[in-house]
Design a protein around this nucleic acid. Structure first.
Lengths: 247, 247
DNA sequence: TCAACGTTTTTTCTCGAGATTTTTGGCTTT
DNA sequence: AAAGCCAAAAATCTCGAGAAAAAACGTTGA
């Protein structure tokens, strides 16, 4: 299978070697936006960024256009690109929509999943558990590892869902969520309870109890929302203010 | 409010004046793909298309990148762009996902909608009815008008849904559906029953009967799926074959 | 002090040409 | 005849410079 340039999750977690400069710039930019190095609402000036990412202006423009796919960047005709703004209302919308889609996807996954899928899930859960242990041990740089494995775990949960469109939309929403979560993680580390939540979800899925699994998953996603919304509004407010100022 | 370049529906149905060449090429290309002038699976050669759309190569590339947002175009690293392929399985997935999202959206819309929204809906239904009369009269060029007004009607139905993300996803799915519908319309005109279905949905919504409205809407969308799937598979098959051939 | 206006500066948008990769087509060999 | 290989052709990808638009800034006048 060819390498398609899309925002979807990759089937395997292997390292991805960008085939073109556009693709490389696209991935770097996406990462920098999600991890907050480009603050929400700020302008993305091509002249400035092309040096930072070491590509031509046209190349960078194309990468930015691709990022519009993921709703991480918005384009305003004749006035350039800017990082998609954030707000608490938006996060609530993301959360609600994600709960709806992810519940449906999990249900389908539990229905369709074979033993190979179960195996993948066991593996993903194990790796996530290890990452959570390291996180408690407060090792530096383990946050990125946790983020990766958390993503893979959620991705694997719905991996046997046979609706490509639901998975596509969830990939977009997950990235959006990650952006908000990164902000809240700066102030407060991942709570202890999260591991227990993951474990409960894992057990319910293995037991093929769809109702219980969806109930737990919904609670899990909503709890993440409340964690972020409890963060001093400064982060969200300042972002909005930048947008209001228009620069 | 500024003009954002996104694939979402516009709030008003007014004519849109493209602000940049990229934007213009994007809209023209989108239309040509949806209406089947670029067959599913075919390669989109920049060298060839830049003349047809009268823009530079870089500009066209950027427009193509924007079309990836809508999943109407897929990019393969180092091997250019091509029109997103179609298949019956894909249409079924689109339909199922759309039913789920559109039901939820309609429910929210019925809950939230004020009288202004009701007014818009009455207007949209009236215009659609007129278009359907013309269609029965077999006037040429009325298909495009019907498509427009059908889109506006569905758009208005969920217009009072306050989830921006659901509306965003539905806009994408609607465009995909339209693509399939255009193929089936070539062989068979819009069935008579469709008008009656629209009327029933309209009445249920005005009566604020969410359950009944969703039931009717789901049936309506699924019926469209069955209409397309009844079409001689030739259109879908040939498209798939082109993809398999890789050119 | 404030508002309006015209100039300067910055930034976006666009194009054409060159380098790299993929694809095509023909040729040889088994 | 089929498979493999090499050269030619086409297409993609990339860059830098120039035109058009928007934003910033200082000046003038009330």
């Amino acid at each position: 299978m060819d390498q398609l340039i899309t925002g979807d999750f990759q089937a395997n977690g292997e390292a991805y070697e960008p085939k073109t400069l556009v693709d490389g710039a696209y991935r770097q930019l996406r990462r920098d936006i999600i991890e907050g190095r480009h603050a929400p609402g700020t302008k993305l000036r091509v002249e400035h960024l092309k040096d930072a990412y070491e590509v031509g202006a046209g190349t960078l423009r194309e990468a930015l256009a691709l990022l519009v796919s993921d709703s991480l960047v918005v384009a305003q005709g004749q006035r350039g690109f800017r990082v998609a703004p954030i707000s608490l209302a938006d996060l609530e919308d993301i959360t609600r929509t994600r709960v709806m889609l992810e519940s449906e996807a999990l249900r389908q996954s539990i229905d369709n999943g074979d033993e190979a899928w179960e195996g993948n899930l066991v593996s993903a859960f194990h790796l996530l558990t290890r990452a959570e242990e390291k996180l408690a041990g407060d090792l530096d740089g383990s946050v990125n590892e946790w983020e990766d494995r958390n993503r893979v775990f959620h991705e694997t949960l719905i991996g046997a869902c046979n609706s490509r469109w639901i998975r596509h939309f969830l990939a977009i929403l997950y990235r959006q969520s990650e952006r908000y979560r990164r902000i809240s993680v700066l102030n407060r580390p991942v709570p202890q309870d999260v591991h227990e939540e993951h474990e409960q979800i894992f057990k319910a899925v293995i037991a093929r109890d769809a109702d219980e699994a969806c109930r737990l998953l919904s609670g899990h996603i909503w709890r993440a929302f409340h964690t972020v919304s409890a963060v001093p509004e400064l982060a969200l407010e300042s972002a909005s203010r930048k947008v209001a100022n228009g620069r």
